[in-house]
């Protein structure tokens, strides 16, 4: 999966599951302060990402380190690569 595909698919999760306008979905957007998610919403985000990418995400330290949308892209890329290894 290419970086562009991961970005496009992740953004679609934010648009469809969270009704966030595409214009706000920038890599440096902070998911808490800019996009308005809180710690409870992260659980829904993980569920939506799992469903969209067909991967299993453990809500471990790596998830808790996510701050920006760019962090989400990188995290998904690592999970996808990890699965392929």
């Amino acid at each position: 999966m290419t970086e562009e595909e991961i970005i496009e698919k992740t953004n679609r999760v934010f648009e469809e599951s969270f009704e966030i306008e595409p214009g706000r979905l920038k890599a440096d957007a902070h998911i808490f302060t800019d996009l308005g998610l809180d710690s409870l919403d992260i659980v829904d985000l993980v569920v939506a990402l799992q469903s969209s990418f067909g991967v299993k995400i453990r809500t471990d330290e790596k998830v808790r380190e996510i701050r920006t949308l760019g962090d989400v892209y990188s995290f998904i890329a690592r999970v996808k690569n990890g699965e392929q290894d």
Partner: peptide, 9 residues
Amino acid sequence: LTPFTLKSR
């Protein structure tokens, strides 16, 4: 609706 979507509305 997800709780997030509901709160946004």
